[in-house]
């Protein structure tokens, strides 16, 4: 039989949670459900009950299945940009962050190094991306540096961000730069949590540094790596801020991602239903990738 005291404690526990639950239901869950509902409507942003028009799957057809040939092409180009930004970010961020985490773990000046490497994490994104924009300009630091070093073939006349073929490189560079500190923190924590006795046992068995790294450190960091991959993929598909500041999606739409297309449709063209439908399409894709990664993660840990 459950004691009266136990019941009171349970009720009290739920009561303490109630404000947070109510907040989540009223703000979090409501907005999510509303946006799903909205994606099946045509709505200009004001007075939903009075002005929204149910359009079924037309919004999805418009940009996914050629309802508007131009918008379909633009959407898939944007999605392709999301994917390649995600791929290259993961490709570069993981080894760089892992290397830096090793450095920070195995150096006496780890405090100073940590401060330097974590700076991108605490600096204001918009402000910093404006600085990057200047560095990448036609007369910016990058072009001047290449010229000074005699590497004229690397100079992009209109600036890295002013050429449709190179603008995405600028975006990827800033994304990698912004992604390193957070990833490094995770690896740093992962490295710190590895039991020292494992290394001692390996040393006694005569394992080389490389073998220790390959057979002890890396397997134990794999779960963290999968979390990082999921995290970076999510970030890549939700990308907006740096692209908006750096290029606004240009030149010629070369750096548009789904995030910038959602913004343009919602806040410039007042097509909230269409914009939400775009957002949910990407969510489904991200969810699928995350589930796949989680499955991999489970099989690895098992």
């Amino acid at each position: 039989m459950i004691s009266r005291r136990k019941v009171k404690e349970t009720v009290a526990g739920y009561l303490f949670c109630l404000p947070a639950i109510l907040l989540f239901l009223s703000v979090g869950l409501y907005s999510v459900l509303f946006s799903v509902f909205l994606s099946f409507h045509n709505w200009a942003g004001v007075d939903f009950a009075g002005t929204a028009r149910f359009v079924g799957l037309d919004n999805f057809r418009y940009f996914l299945f050629g309802g508007s040939a131009i918008n379909t092409r633009i959407f898939f180009l944007g999605l392709f940009n999301n994917i390649r930004i995600g791929f290259f970010t993961i490709f570069f961020v993981i080894p760089i962050a892992l290397g830096l985490a090793f450095m920070v773990t195995n150096t006496k000046r780890s405090g100073a190094l940590r401060t330097v490497y974590f700076l991108p994490l605490v600096a204001s994104g918009v402000g910093i991306f404006y600085v990057w924009r200047g560095l990448f300009g036609a007369f910016g630091f990058l072009n001047r540096m290449f010229s000074a070093l005699g590497l004229e073939f690397l100079v992009v006349r209109e600036g890295l961000l002013g050429n449709p073929r190179t603008a995405i490189i600028g975006v990827i560079i800033t994304t990698v730069w912004a992604g390193i500190p957070g990833t490094m923190i995770l690896y740093y924590a992962g490295l710190a949590s590895i039991d020292e006795t494992l290394y001692e046992a390996a040393e006694i068995d005569g394992a080389s540094k490389v073998k220790t790294l390959w057979y002890i450190t890396w397997p134990l960091l794999k779960p963290i790596t999968i979390i990082i991959i999921i995290h970076e993929l999510n970030k890549a598909f939700q990308m907006f801020e740096n692209i908006w500041v750096l290029t606004g999606g240009g030149p010629g739409g070369a750096t548009d991602v789904v995030g910038t297309l959602v913004f343009k449709n919602a806040f410039e063209l007042q097509r909230y239903g269409l914009a939400t439908a775009m957002g949910w399409s990407v969510f489904v894709l991200t969810l699928g990738l995350s589930l796949l990664s989680m499955k991999l993660f489970r099989s690895e840990t098992n």
Binding site: A44, Y62, G67, R271
Partner: peptide
């Protein structure tokens, strides 16, 4: 235009 909002259509 299929993307015209109800407010504008009104």
């Amino acid at each position: 235009d299929p993307q015209t909002s109800s407010v504008v259509l009104g």
